[in-house]
Write a protein that binds this DNA or RNA. Structure first.
Lengths: 179, 179
DNA sequence: ACCGTTGTGAACATGAGTGTTCACTTGCTG
DNA sequence: CAGCAAGTGAACACTCATGTTCACAACGGT
């Protein structure tokens, strides 16, 4: 079960980025030799985990209609649900030093950036750069995942929290006098 | 100059959390032996760096009037200016496993949480928990620091970006029809 | 000039993670 | 049954970060 192996590796490495390959193998219930057979080196394993996360995002991206005005809400809601598998991409240290991964992440960002730029004509504010908005979205996801991990946030509440906060902000101005 | 040593250690460890003590010593322009004399173990160094960051935050907290209604804006603006020294606290992996640091971080958070709770009576929305708002603020800081690091954001623009985004959100609803 | 402090490089021992090989078992297939 | 693929534990060599010790140089104060 290579799938299960990758998932286990994700959670172990996410909890402790310095975890040894023995730790990963033990957590996955396989021998260290087997792990080495599937992923010859540590960097190969990390890259595989990251690519698995990217695959997951790709599969979600396909289901989103980027032409819709609610595309961002849809995308974010789906991303929140992915959880740790994708959190790995934003958290694991040193991932940005991998050339191949960096370009793939950029490829993944581009359509979202385009979407944001397009929506800045209508529902998104124009006085902030698109990349800043993108990173704000990511920060919201990050927050949600962390809160879920600590048991402070119910997974089903997460999408609402993220979308509300990112879009409307934490100021009460938008909520009290919305006549 | 122990101060300079800590600052260098901060930036080196922030850029690569797995950097060796030799790397840190070399970057600081001191011998590895000297580094070991001042910080006997690696964890001692990491803890010192973190505590240095917490001291920095404390010194900033003192200057903020937590009774004011604009306390959060003031606090955030000052925190943004601190940059990498404090970024270390939010980024360095495994920091939360240090009991002493965790409690000190909680102590640091408490007055801000109280402030948020108080302001939820007036300017902050009440339909989000205080801890969520706090983490949203932190996420904004994080975003700004990262953007500054990559050279995408001018340090002087950072406070405005963070405050605008966090308080008003990225939706244009709050900007277009503010009659 | 003497001495204590501080910093320095060199050397060493140690431990841990890593990558490799090998012999053995298990299970499936022809 | 024979054979092949996959998994496994044990053992090994290698590298590297770490922590320690030691002898020496630079410096400042007395």
């Amino acid at each position: 079960m290579s799938v299960h192996l990758l998932q286990t590796a994700t959670s172990v490495l996410l909890k402790d980025p310095t975890a040894s390959l023995s730790d990963v193998a033990r957590a996955a219930g396989v021998g260290r030799t087997t792990l080495h057979k599937r992923f010859p080196t540590r960097t190969a394993l990390v890259r595989a985990v990251a690519n698995d996360a990217l695959d997951l995002i790709d599969s979600v991206s396909c289901q989103v209609d980027f032409g819709s005005d609610d595309a961002i809400e849809d995308l974010m809601t789906r991303l929140v649900a992915l959880g740790p598998r994708v959190e790995f991409l934003l958290r694991f240290p040193g991932l940005e030093r991998d050339e191949q991964l960096r370009t793939r992440i950029e490829e993944m960002d581009r359509p979202v950036l385009d979407l944001i730029t397009r929506l800045q004509g209508t529902k998104l504010r124009r006085d902030l750069p698109a990349w800043w908005i993108l990173h704000t979205l990511y920060a919201g996801l990050f927050n949600a995942w962390e809160a879920i991990n600590y048991g402070r946030l119910a997974p089903l509440d997460a999408p609402r929290f993220v979308l509300t906060t990112v879009f409307e902000g934490v100021s009460s101005a938008g909520t009290t006098d919305r006549t």
